[in-house]
């Protein structure tokens, strides 16, 4: 199995959690590595802005002496976006429906991020 399909497999498993509308594995500099995104979302922009968001949050936290954040959660009435690091070179981001159970999603996201980190080793 190719690396790409293994990464896509991780995203597919993540989707099985439910309430996940889109997910992507993105390099830290904002390039799309693998995605499970419907065609009405601009995947490239989504990838770039996820990297901006997580990067800015990490710098803000570490500049304030609070270490690295585990994740960035953005909530709106139309849904949620959660971005988390997956090793030094990539990050994992998901977009959920508004009613999604965040606890369960965070748990699955943590597991998935470790898998991505191992795969990209």
């Amino acid at each position: 199995m190719s690396l790409r399909s293994e990464l896509e497999e991780v995203l597919k498993e993540l989707k099985a959690t439910g309430d996940i509308e889109a997910s992507a594995i993105v390099s830290r500099d904002g390039l799309l590595i693998a995605a499970d995104i419907s065609s009405n979302v601009n995947a490239e922009a989504f990838a770039a802005m996820s990297a901006t968001m997580l990067g800015a949050a990490e710098t803000a936290m570490s500049e304030l002496g609070k270490g690295l954040p585990d994740r960035v959660v953005v909530e709106s009435s139309d849904g949620k976006i959660v971005a988390t690091g997956a090793g030094d070179r990539a990050l994992l981001v998901v977009m959920t429906s508004p009613k999604a159970n965040l606890g369960l999603i965070l748990l699955q996201l943590g597991k998935a991020s470790k898998k991505v980190e191992e795969l990209l080793g």
Partner: peptide, 9 residues
């Protein structure tokens, strides 16, 4: 805020 040698934010 730079990652992999480029500014992301």
């Amino acid at each position: 805020v730079d990652r992999l040698g480029t500014t992301v934010a």
